[in-house]
């Protein structure tokens, strides 16, 4: 498989960037998108050029490190992370655009790497349970309704990759914040702090410069973990009730 890549290259945070065209060959359909970029980078290093900088870690779709917008979609055409996106979803001769997450709250550090520490500060504002809970309790120690447990678990699946912010035309972090609020506020362990949590997390989210929600639904479409737009409805309800 031979491909034409147009990749955003930016040497540093304040340096101007541009889309740079690369030809890459010898790609098989079983390679992941990141492995394809590894091959490109090996060629660039052999040529004496700077390799393309991108975030990656687990490469099995659970850490949320990889972050690139492929053909205008965060993590590309499939509902998965970039590391789990395989080249079989592309065809020989394709031209693929690769860009970093775009948001004022996620400044570009280099090439495709952005600073997502704004998410850490939102979590720091209340995305946890204050009380030390020790080791895992017996399963029947705290009664949790089945429906609440399932919904909390679905929202705990958020890996904080930031695809929701990258997809949102307003660069809004509502889906990320909502996932954490739904996860913790539904559980009895998180209930005592549910009001202060949602207030603090929304305040932190706003102070980071993320945009507001206009209910376009782009975030839920992009989320590799399938977190739905209904999470934002629940966040809104929790926030308005916390007054």
């Amino acid at each position: 498989m031979n491909l034409t890549l147009r990749i955003w290259r930016q040497p540093g945070p304040d340096a101007p960037g541009e889309m740079t065209v690369y030809q890459v060959g010898g790609i098989t359909e079983d390679m992941s998108f990141l492995e394809m970029l590894d091959i490109l980078n090996e060629e660039l290093i052999l040529r004496g050029d700077q390799p393309v900088a991108f975030d990656h870690d687990c490469r099995e779709g659970i850490c949320g490190a990889c972050s690139m917008v492929i053909n205008g979609r965060p993590h590309g055409p499939e509902r998965t992370t970039t590391c789990q996106l395989h080249m079989r979803h592309f065809t020989d001769g394709d031209t693929i655009d690769v860009e970093p997450w775009r948001s004022a709250a996620f400044p570009v550090i280099k090439d495709l790497v952005v600073d997502r520490s704004a998410f850490d500060r939102i979590i720091g504002a209340g995305g946890y349970i204050t009380a030390p809970t020790g080791s895992a309790p017996d399963a029947h120690a705290v009664p949790v309704p089945k429906e609440a447990a399932d919904r909390a678990f679905e929202h705990a699946e958020c890996i904080g990759c930031g695809a929701c912010v990258a997809a949102c035309p307003n660069g809004s972090a509502m889906l990320f914040t909502a996932a954490k609020v739904v996860h913790l506020n539904l559980l009895p362990q998180g209930a005592p702090e549910r009001r202060s949590r949602v207030r603090s997390m929304v305040a932190a989210m706003d102070s980071e410069g993320f945009g507001g929600c206009t209910n376009t639904g782009e975030c839920a479409t992009a989320c590799p973990k399938g977190i739905g737009l209904d999470a934002i409805g629940t966040l809104n309800r929790e926030f308005l009730r916390a007054r």
Binding site: R6, W8, N71, E99, R102, P169, G171, G211, G212
Partner: peptide
């Protein structure tokens, strides 16, 4: 809110595609 939203995405994507429904946009 619109002012804030536009500030939150200062740089757009080079790869353009239709996003969300016509009524939303």
């Amino acid at each position: 809110l619109s002012r804030r939203d536009l500030r939150a995405r200062p740089t757009g994507y080079r790869h353009r595609r239709a996003r969300s429904s016509y009524a939303t946009r």
